[in-house]
């Protein structure tokens, strides 16, 4: 297994609230520079389907109406699964991994709850999976550092990279 990108690798970045799914082994899905957001990656080893969603906030009931189900954890998880099924994945095969959920800003002590959105995002992702009888197999969340999560469509390898640190396999 090599983490080196070859010339043919196509990198697709998921912006805030974006969901990307792929069956092409030459693609690499990424959420570059996650802070309090969560990058949730899914892989079906049997069909080779991969998916990645860039989740921004925990609860769609507390936000304004949006046409981006990927924005909120509670709507992002079912939508990711739906889109993966549409390209041939089986729900029971899916392996989920997540990174992000950092606390970047303390808000000077006040409004500390508001700035704990990273923690709340992670809890909401776990809850949304649990509601469907699913779990996270691996994750790296919390702390105060930004992260990039990548999923290599060739074999479903998920990696996490922090500033000035090497990319490590999750």
């Amino acid at each position: 297994m090599s983490l080196l990108l070859n010339k043919k690798t196509i990198i697709l970045n998921a912006g805030m609230g974006d969901i990307i799914v792929s069956k092409e082994s030459s693609t690499l899905l990424a959420c570059p520079g996650l802070g309090s957001c969560i990058g949730l990656a899914a892989y079906d080893p049997k069909s080779g389907c991969t998916g990645l969603v860039h989740i921004v906030l925990p609860d769609s009931n507390k936000g304004r109406i949006t046409n981006k189900p990927g924005k909120f954890a509670d709507t992002a998880v079912p939508e990711l699964i739906k889109e993966m099924k549409a390209i041939g994945a089986q729900v029971n095969n899916l392996v989920f991994k997540a990174a992000g959920g950092a606390k970047m800003f303390s808000g000077g002590g006040k409004s500390s709850d508001v700035f704990n959105v990273g923690d709340r995002n992670f809890e909401a992702v776990k809850l949304a999976l649990k509601d469907l009888g699913l779990t996270l197999s691996k994750y790296e969340v919390g702390g105060t550092e930004g992260r990039t999560i990548r999923i290599y469509c060739s074999d479903g390898t998920v990696t996490v990279k922090k500033v000035n640190k090497a990319e490590v396999v999750l």
Partner: peptide, 23 residues
């Protein structure tokens, strides 16, 4: 409020503030 200094990845900084407001 008093200023707070954060050094991190650009995306991590931006998305943190944007997510607060995007509610």
């Amino acid at each position: 409020s008093p200023p707070e200094t954060i050094t991190s990845m650009m995306g991590a900084i931006l998305s943190t503030f944007v997510s607060q407001l995007s509610l």
